[in-house]
Simulated scan of single mutants.
Amino acid sequence: MTTEDRDLDPVDDSVDTPDGSRSSSSPDAPAGASAAPARQKRKHLPVWQETILLLGIALVLAVVIKALFVQAFYIPSESMEPGLVKNDRILVQKVSYWFGGEPQRGDVVVFEDPGSWLSDAEQGDPTNGLTSLMAKIGLYPTGGHLVKRVVGVAGDTITCCDEKGRISVNGKPLNEEAYVKREKGIDCRGPMTGNCSWSAGPVPEGQLFVMGDNRGHSADSSAHLCLPEEETDCTKNPYVPVDSVVGKVFVLLWPTDRFDWVGRPDAFANVPDPS
């Protein structure tokens, strides 16, 4: 047998590197080429396209947040003084009324006009084109709504007033000193007509009885009652449909020096259920 007939050992083309590792080279690969293919660089969008994309995402988020979670409004009148003043900016949350939840006594709520409660001056939607667009997508406080406090819910009877001038709900007088504005010439915490002897209810199912905290200057449920001794428009419904409620006020946002959380007062804690 000749040496040519013997099995040859495989040729080791690997090369020792300075760190002790071994690297192999291919005769077909050009010198200095990497064994792995080079990764392609990711292409970036032009700045103007990225800007449009980000604006689009922001608008979609704003619409979703407005529709489902939080919306900004402003106070259209003096009816909620002293706590909320005309032109105050407020935030309304909608989560509390999800999944069958409904407004409770003492909540400050924003609701759609149930029928000619707002004057033309109080409609007050933005007239500027830009602010109108921002209002529609939830980035600017809107008007055309009312802000009142829920005094009675379905089944409740509201009576004005006891010897101390207090509103009673289901026979329980309310201590409203903490939030109702006292005014000279108003002997009770009744309607803006000054009448201190009236009763409302039982509140129909799916309806609310609402009042402003500035009782002498609030065209609320009490002002739309049909009182026999007064000339009133008895076609007006004094109640507000629950379905027209947008949400519950939880923040007085602006002016910043009066920033405050808006909650449910203790005055309604011990009101009994309707009998």
Rank of each mutant, 00 (worst) to 15 (best):
K43T: 13
K43L: 11
H44K: 09
V47S: 02
V47T: 06
V47A: 07
W48E: 14
W48C: 08
W48Q: 14
W48R: 15
W48T: 14
Q49F: 05
Q49T: 15
E50S: 04
T51H: 12
T51A: 15
T51L: 13
I52K: 03
L53A: 15
L53D: 05
L54Q: 08
L55K: 03
L55T: 15
G56R: 14
G56Y: 11
I57K: 10
I57R: 04
I57E: 03
A58Q: 02
L59G: 11
V60N: 02
L61R: 06
L61A: 14
A62F: 09
A62S: 05
A62V: 01
V64H: 03
I65E: 10
I65H: 03
I65V: 15
I65D: 11
K66C: 02
A67P: 01
A67E: 09
A67F: 02
F69K: 08
F69G: 10
F69R: 08
F69Y: 14
V70S: 02
V70N: 07
V70Q: 05
Q71Y: 00
Q71W: 03
Q71K: 13
Q71F: 01
A72P: 10
A72W: 04
F73H: 03
I75L: 05
I75N: 00
I75C: 04
P76M: 08
P76S: 10
P76V: 12
S77A: 12
S77Y: 00
S77L: 05
E78M: 07
E78C: 06
E78G: 13
S79I: 01
M80N: 06
E81F: 04
E81D: 10
P82Y: 11
P82I: 10
L84D: 02
L84A: 08
L84Q: 02
K86P: 01
K86S: 10
D88Q: 11
D88G: 04
D88A: 08
D88M: 06
R89L: 13
R89Q: 13
R89F: 14
R89E: 08
I90G: 07
L91T: 12
L91A: 14
V92T: 13
V92Q: 05
Q93R: 07
Q93G: 03
K94N: 08
K94T: 00
V95S: 11
V95R: 15
V95W: 12
V95P: 02
S96P: 00
S96H: 11
Y97K: 10
W98F: 07
W98H: 04
F99E: 14
F99K: 14
F99S: 13
G100A: 04
E102D: 06
P103E: 06
P103M: 11
Q104N: 09
Q104L: 13
R105G: 01
R105D: 04
R105C: 05
G106R: 08
G106W: 09
G106H: 03
D107C: 11
V108M: 11
V108A: 06
V108I: 15
V109A: 05
V110G: 01
V110L: 04
F111A: 12
F111M: 09
E112F: 00
D113A: 11
D113L: 08
P114H: 12
P114W: 13
